[in-house]
Amino acid sequence: MKKRGIGIGASLYPTGMSGGGDSSQAQVKVQPDGTVVLTTGACDIGEGCKTVLAQMAAEVLGINYEQVKVINDNTDNCPLSFGTFASRVTYVDGKATVDAAEKARDILFEVAGQMLEANPGDMEAVDGKISVKGSPDRSLPIGEVAGAATFGMRKLVVGLGHYMREPSAPDPETGEIDPFCTLAWAAVLAEVEVDTETGEVDLLRLVCSYDVGTAINPLLTEGQIEGGGAMSIGAALSEELYPNYPSLEQAPTNLGDYAIPTTMDIPDIEAVIHECPSTNGPFGAKGIGEMTANTPAPAIINAIHDAVGVWIMTLPATPERVLRALDEKGGA
């Protein structure tokens, strides 16, 4: 008999490393033609940090992100990034990038201030121009300002940015501690159909809702939610790291034995982006990279319980484990 059930998984996840030393740096250079080169140590492993960091630099400098070239190709030439892990790059490297872009912008304001005979503190960078706030007729294209800085004033328009959160120690009286950059939240709903004769679990629907702070790039955010969802489905239902029999020699050694979900195993994951901007992240961003792979599996296991009344306490919920649990319970 096939039985359906619904389950919910919920999680919170900290962004970045607590305990200090989680450092990232960035360099933003405005070329004499007004285009921008962002050099960062952040490594893009497909999540799209080159796009997101370029967007952030562009936003600060008031230009289109297509005008930002991102260089992150080796650790000798690039500023340091602690790495692409701990859901930290958008937040930590984002803050370093914003810091660098703001410092480069300050140099542009200083130069434009001289050219426009205005106070650098009264300038803004919008629509590819450096303008006096409130007087749009007093403005110069960013390329003209950067060109004058380079060829007229012997100035290098480079901003060096950095972010590293101070470590937080617990208060000796209360134990209170503030260890995280920010926290992201998630709720995932899964609907499954369990075959009580074969033990097979068919995932019918997966709705993944994440509080991402601000979605700097909603399309990339959806991509992370769906990709993490697929990994979590594998963890919940098919990816067995250790063999059923107690010998490492029988562990899976190829992708035929270690079953990564295919197109036939993953439903169209419904990604829901919930925006609750963080108070301290770059443009309100949080990090959700890792939690997208943590939250769906518990929802699926809860859905199996809802369907047939057994708790699968060891992942993945293979047909064998589901059948054994059903046997122990005395049937569905």
Binding site: G223, E226, G227, A230, L255, I260, I266, I269
Partner: peptide, 8 residues
């Protein structure tokens, strides 16, 4: 196989 995008 795709390991990062979820196929959709």
């Amino acid at each position: 196989l795709c390991r990062c995008a979820g196929y959709g």
